[in-house]
Amino acid sequence: MEKRLFRDAMGKFATGITVVSTDYQNDVKGITVNSFMSLSLDPTLIAISIDKTASIYDVLLEVDTFGISILSEDQKEESMIYANQKEVETPVNFIDLAGTPVLDNALVQLSCEKESAVEAGDHMIYIAKVNDLKINDGNPLLYFSGSYQQLGE
């Protein structure tokens, strides 16, 4: 099967968009991720999948904690910045949530502690326990068929 065909097929699954962030050597590192899911309520577990060629790949191997920001519909710019699709023009605002950096004004902010990592093809799947969270009002930023989308009215 051609990789492009598989990628196009998976793009037909609409997803929310997150930014995974961590404090690494006193600098916030982040990456846009749409491969995110809830795994368990007891304990509170989530999973993310990170490409082995991603700029943050080696950083996530080293750290024990990271934040996840589920983006609101007005955070397309932040998504593009951490997907390396746009240069930073104004500073991106992060806040601290239980010791992890998360994007200010994200729809949901999670502080996570790494539980395990599983190699899966060209990706690493991280399973993490959610230690704290904050929920804000708004609508999500979505990704479908290779482009950003918003909920219809």
Rank of each mutant, 00 (worst) to 15 (best):
V88T: 13
G67T: 02
I125L: 11
K129S: 12
A54D: 05
I70M: 06
F94S: 01
N136V: 08
V63L: 00
N26K: 07
D104G: 04
P140W: 07
I48L: 13
L39C: 14
D122Y: 07
V88R: 10
G152Y: 04
D132Q: 08
N26I: 02
L71E: 06
G30S: 01
S40C: 11
M80D: 13
S55D: 09
H123I: 05
F6H: 11
P101I: 00
I135M: 14
S21K: 07
N136M: 10
I81T: 09
N136W: 08
S79G: 05
T32P: 03
M124V: 09
Q150M: 12
L110H: 01
L110A: 01
M124F: 03
A54L: 05
S147M: 12
V88F: 06
K52A: 09
V92N: 09
S49I: 03
Q25I: 04
T15N: 12
N93Y: 05
V20I: 15
N131P: 01
R4K: 12
Y24L: 04
E78C: 12
Y148N: 11
D51V: 09
S55I: 11
M37C: 14
E89G: 05
L142K: 11
L5Q: 12
L141H: 08
V59N: 01
L107A: 10
L39K: 02
V118W: 10
Q85W: 10
F66R: 00
N131G: 03
E89W: 12
S35A: 15
K86R: 15
N131M: 06
R4I: 12
I95G: 00
D122K: 11
D27Q: 13
V63E: 00
N34S: 12
